[in-house]
């Protein structure tokens, strides 16, 4: 899933500094699961903003609405009525949701409450980790199911580099060396010889470097 975290409340308040009334739009998708932008977090942020603005002598009115998912246009129209009489909308969805809101409400000021972080999952209660670099050209079958693109800080395809020590990455003792993990797993599977193959340069045009990516499925379009 997409993991996102809330921006600093001062920064969020500054984005709607001249507004009298705002809609805080939560999302029932990934950000609900990662406890950062669901219904509960939306109510808490609304209350915190009201309190903050009241203390600053610029009272702010808030309304809230949590869409099933902001990343699908069909779930957005139900908030049309609420959007009509606010000065701005603060979206607690990932960047996809913010953009769908901006597309639909062309004359409204739409701002993000979140920093969209990565595709990953929980590693324990209150901790999440990136697992997939969304590179569009999966190599997990060659690396024992451990992604070097995103879990190696240099995205090395023929690792590990000389900075790997005691299973950790050179950038931090808190970061596992992805290539140590790959080596250990391939060794355990009796497939170390596969790592001796020189992996060719990656096709980054399938990643973000090729512009916004699109998928067209003829089978579904023709239906």
């Amino acid at each position: 899933m997409i993991i996102a975290q809330q921006k600093n409340i001062q920064d969020i308040a500054a984005m709607v500094g001249d507004c009298k009334k705002v809609l805080l739009a939560g999302c029932g998708g990934c950000v609900t699961v990662c406890l950062s932008g669901g219904e509960k977090e939306t109510e808490i942020l609304a209350a915190a903003l009201r309190l903050m603005k009241k203390q600053a002598g610029q009272p702010l009115a808030t309304v809230t609405y949590t869409a099933t998912r902001q990343c699908e246009p069909e779930f957005i129209p139900p908030m049309d009525e609420l959007v009509r009489d606010v000065d701005a909308v603060i979206s607690l969805a990932c960047g996809v949701g913010v953009q769908y809101l901006a597309e639909r409400y062309k004359d409204k000021w739409i701002v993000p409450a979140m920093d969209t972080m990565f595709a990953g999952g929980a590693t324990g209660f209150g901790s999440w980790e990136e697992k997939c670099g969304l590179c569009g050209d999966c190599v997990l079958h060659r690396t024992g199911g451990i992604c070097p693109v995103i879990r190696c800080s240099k995205s090395i395809m023929n690792g590990p580099c000389g900075g790997s020590q005691h299973g950790k990455c050179e950038i931090s003792k808190e970061v596992d060396c992805a290539w140590q993990l790959i080596y250990d797993r391939m060794k355990a599977l009796g497939r170390l010889s596969e790592l001796t193959v020189i992996q060719p340069p990656k096709d980054w045009s399938k990643a973000r470097d090729g512009g916004p990516r699109r998928i067209l499925r003829e089978d579904l379009i023709k239906g």
């Binding site: 800080s153 023929n158 050179e170």
Partner: peptide, 28 residues
């Protein structure tokens, strides 16, 4: 070479490239 990660340097907020790795550079 791969090169030390930019985190250690004087521009830790820069974007690293690592388009190819050192192994691929040698071969190419």
């Amino acid at each position: 070479l791969s090169g030390d990660h930019q985190q250690f340097g004087n521009h830790p907020t820069s974007k690293n490239v690592f388009d190819i790795d050192s192994m691929q550079l040698i071969y190419l």
